[in-house]
Simulated scan of single mutants.
Amino acid sequence: MPTTGRVRHAAPGLGHSGVVTVTGQLGEFLRARRARLRPEDVGLGALPGRRRVTGLRREELAQLAGVSVSYYTRLEQGQSVNASDAVLDALAGALRLDDHERTHLRELASRRPRPLRRPPAERVNAMTLDLVRSMENVPTLVLGRRTDVLAWNPLGHALLASHLDPTAPERPADRPNVARMLFLDPHCRDLYVDWDRKARGVVANLRLIAGRHPEDALLASLVGELSVKSPEFVALWGDHRVKPCEGATYRLRHPLVGELTVTQQALSLPHSPEQSVLVVTAEQGSSSQDTLRLLGRFTVTS
């Protein structure tokens, strides 16, 4: 049975002294989304007086959502709970949230403070391992809830983390983590030509997972570690953007075979819904496909 545990590094919005500050996450999310909008963006005339805040004022957002300023203030400050679906829908509309952000808002509003718990180590289903092994000509990884690498095939290892021990995913304590590598591993930073876009995507996905699993002590610890060690992560985490990592195209600068353009797609697993299979492909007939094939030959030789 999982045991309650403290987080070594306090993670912004994920809790202090071992307890998740769910109401704090909700307030931070509302403030961040409010800061994105200006009165003219939503058809409001600016209120009189000098503006001291970035984006909409609380009064302006309350007006748009059709709620009282005092109620919205209590909600943002964590002094009011059990917001109705109608209120949440009104706030989502006023803030112009997309579908992922709307779901995230509901998850944050429905959570209650709970102790952080250390979940058991994630395991990879045998069927999933068979799938990864069968895709020997396609770089493939299995990622866990917190972007831990649970498994990879030789070509996936060679493309994204050739400098690491290929057997590391087999040991829970040594598993590489995509978010940690992206922000703290120079090799992975250099691998992505458009590192900023990749980093934004990974952080937005972590934000989404944090809203679903606020009691996950390992996730809190990961966010805390990155917050201490990476100012870039802190800035992106504070933006409160949420979006799942489903698929995107990136230019890579591989140390062995040079530049190539690949598409990374995260495929869901019905039997393991919190895990995904990351498949990396190149456009049919492109030079990048030839480069992947060359890397595959190097991998077989080594």
Rank of each mutant, 00 (worst) to 15 (best):
L292E: 04
T73W: 11
R293T: 13
R171S: 07
D98L: 03
S268H: 13
A109T: 08
V228Q: 07
P48A: 12
V87P: 10
A220F: 00
V42Q: 02
A158H: 10
E40M: 07
T299M: 12
A86K: 13
P154C: 11
I209Y: 13
R118L: 10
L14R: 08
S227I: 00
L37W: 07
L182Y: 05
E246H: 09
P113F: 03
R175N: 15
L95E: 06
E283M: 05
V81P: 09
A62W: 13
G201R: 07
D174C: 08
L208C: 06
S70C: 06
G144V: 07
M1I: 04
Q25I: 01
A151M: 05
N177R: 03
Q63E: 14
A168G: 12
P39N: 07
S287H: 15
L206S: 02
P119C: 04
L108M: 12
A168H: 14
A32P: 04
F183Q: 02
E40W: 05
A35P: 14
Q264V: 08
S276P: 14
V178G: 07
K229A: 02
D174K: 06
E274H: 08
L37F: 08
R207Y: 04
P255G: 06
V193Q: 07
L88V: 10
L14H: 04
R114Y: 05
S272V: 04
S162G: 06
Y250P: 05
L267N: 12
V67L: 05
L191W: 03
G45Y: 08
A83L: 10
E107L: 14
G66C: 11
A65F: 11
A109L: 13
A282S: 14
L191G: 05
D196W: 01
L278D: 09
L116N: 01
S287W: 14
V279S: 11
A235F: 04
S288M: 13
V300R: 15
A173I: 11
H240A: 01
R145V: 08
L91F: 08
G55P: 15
S134A: 15
L260A: 10
L129C: 13
Q79H: 15
G211F: 06
S221I: 01
L222W: 02
R123E: 09
E122S: 07
L37Q: 08
T167W: 11
E101C: 00
N82C: 08
A92Q: 03
G43P: 09
G144M: 11
P115M: 00
L226Y: 03
R31K: 09
V178A: 12
A158T: 06
L191H: 06
L164F: 04
A109K: 07
Y192R: 10
T249H: 08
Y71F: 13
H213K: 13
D85H: 11
A62I: 05
P214K: 00
L47K: 10
T301F: 03
Q63R: 15
Q289W: 11
Q264R: 09
F233L: 00
M181T: 05
G156V: 06
L236A: 02
G156Y: 05
F298C: 09
G5N: 15
R58N: 03
Q79D: 14
S17D: 15
